[in-house]
Lab assay of single mutants.
Amino acid sequence: RERTTFTRAQLDVLEALFAKTRYPDIFMREEVALKINLPESRVQVWFKNRRAKCRQ
């Protein structure tokens, strides 16, 4: 699998959701994945990595 490159628009949507909740449930992830045209698994990993970035 190639490394996913997120567009600015995708990142804006993800960051906005992250500001609301750091742990979105499966339904929220599915919804945002459809909206920004990414698989739900990529959204899940993005959140995992974003939380890790926050902890540093």
Rank of each mutant, 00 (worst) to 15 (best):
V43E: 00
L17S: 07
S41G: 09
A9V: 12
A33W: 00
L34K: 15
E40P: 06
E31C: 05
F27M: 15
P39A: 07
R55S: 13
A9K: 14
K35F: 03
I26W: 10
E40T: 06
F47K: 00
T4W: 04
A9Y: 10
S41D: 13
L34Q: 15
N49W: 05
F6L: 13
F47Q: 00
F6M: 13
A9T: 15
S41Q: 14
R42W: 12
D12V: 12
A16Q: 09
I36L: 15
E2Y: 05
K35M: 12
R29Y: 07
R51T: 03
R50S: 09
L34R: 15
R29D: 01
R3F: 13
K35I: 05
E31R: 06
Q56E: 14
E40V: 09
D12Q: 05
E30P: 00
K20N: 09
T7S: 10
I26K: 13
F18R: 01
Q10G: 01
S41V: 09
Q56T: 05
F47M: 07
A52M: 11
F47D: 02
F27T: 15
W46N: 01
R50W: 04
L34C: 11
T4H: 08
V32K: 04
T21G: 01
L14K: 01
T5S: 10
C54P: 08
F47I: 15
R42G: 09
A19Q: 10
T4L: 11
C54D: 15
A9H: 10
E31D: 07
C54K: 07
K53A: 10
L11R: 10
A52F: 05
E30D: 12
F27Q: 15
D25C: 05
F6A: 06
F47E: 00
A16G: 08
K53S: 12
F27D: 11
L14Y: 00
K20G: 03
K48P: 00
R50I: 09
M28H: 07
C54G: 10
M28R: 08
R51H: 00
T5A: 12
S41M: 05
C54W: 06
L17A: 12
F18A: 02
K53Q: 14
Q10I: 05
R8E: 15
Q44V: 08
Q44G: 13
T4C: 08
K35T: 09
P39H: 08
Y23I: 04
R1M: 13
T7W: 01
P39K: 03
P39M: 04
V13D: 06
Q44I: 06
L11N: 10
K35L: 06
A16L: 05
E30L: 09
F27R: 15
D25K: 03
V13P: 05
R42I: 10
R51I: 09
L17K: 04
E30Q: 13
A16H: 15
I26G: 09
E40G: 04
I36D: 01
I36P: 02
K35D: 05
F18P: 05
K48F: 05
E2M: 04
K48G: 06
A9Q: 15
F18Y: 09
N49I: 05
V32F: 04
T21L: 04
D25N: 07
K53N: 11
V45M: 13
E30I: 04
R1C: 07
E15G: 05
R3S: 15
L38E: 15
A33R: 02
A16T: 13
L14F: 01
I36N: 05
R55P: 11
V32R: 02
L34Y: 04
K35S: 09
V32L: 09
Q10P: 01
K53G: 12
P24Q: 03
D25M: 01
V43H: 02
A33C: 05
C54H: 10
L17P: 00
T21C: 09
R1A: 15
T5M: 08
K48A: 13
Q44T: 14
N37Y: 00
R55H: 12
R42S: 12
L17N: 04
V32A: 14
P24R: 01
E15D: 01
